[in-house]
Design a protein around this nucleic acid. Sequence first.
DNA 1: CCGAGCATCTCGGAGACCGAGATAATCCGG
DNA 2: CCGGATTATCTCGGTCTCCGAGATGCTCGG
Lengths: 165, 165
Amino acid sequence: MAEETQAEKVERIERQRTEAEELSWALRAVVQASGEVDRTLARRLDLRPLDYAAMTHAMNAPDLLGPVELSERLGIATGSATELVDRLEAAGHLRRDRHPNDRRRVSLSPTDTSVRTILEALEPLLTDLDALARDFTPDEQAAIQRYLRSAADRLHRYARRTDGT
Amino acid sequence: MAEETQAEKVERIERQRTEAEELSWALRAVVQASGEVDRTLARRLDLRPLDYAAMTHAMNAPDLLGPVELSERLGIATGSATELVDRLEAAGHLRRDRHPNDRRRVSLSPTDTSVRTILEALEPLLTDLDALARDFTPDEQAAIQRYLRSAADRLHRYARRTDGT
DNA sequence: CCGAGCATCTCGGAGACCGAGATAATCCGG
DNA sequence: CCGGATTATCTCGGTCTCCGAGATGCTCGG
């Protein structure tokens, strides 16, 4: 690469800075649009925002999820979580199961019909997004994925660090 | 086959996923992490989730924003929006101004102190994300930005199309 | 077997949200 | 310019959600 004057260097860095900010802004737009999707989906399922959030947690939970952990994730009191689960169970969205070994615990899992309904509603969006991904070369896909994973990680870290629980 | 835990099931599905689907999943992780950020930030500002959402709308509104439009965006009744604005105004987050020409209308705008507080809290995250963007080559940045913009657009379209308003 | 610790549920009270008006300003056809 | 329709906002009573302190039932270490 050829020599670079100080002015050129400054300009290059400046350009990179603004482009980096553009990228962060694009990310923000995605998040905002995703919020819209969540809102309309919650309305379609006839769920209050918090109840919808509870369902997403129930569907993504890596391991067993109980009312207490749910209350922590949603930032509500445990009693409120119990009532929330009551509502979702009554509406046929969630199932309560006793843990076989520790009978204090309650396992919350989404019902099959609920999962199917949500996936059906989301299916066109998911295939659309998958199609979008296929418009990029493998190298580009790798870069995008690297960016997304790292961004998610940093967002997660920030949330954890800022959170005063 | 014996019972399969939720974690095992998730893992099995994870393995079957194609590259494109991996990308969509990474996007989902970002959105989820961003939700966490919103939640903790709302708690730090001592705002209920909906009140926090109202503040973000007030800060991003392109033009004049009144209680009615706010109620539409948040999906609540107009009366509820009035009370919500009451709360935010009492807490010093929002300011009510009468529109000079149309005296029916009320203009909602965030107070300076509120804007400063939010930006200060977000500053480390924003610089962190900008720094992340700079880890990529210009070509990669372009691809990522193209992906993000298109994804936001498709999410937005889906929300609009699905929404039964 | 006992007491500490934990997950969940119960219950009374405070507050948010709804929705059907009331109020006031603006717009529009005649 | 007038009267009705429209629009933006607010008021008010009722219902449901959420809080938080305590009760209940279960587990575990000694």
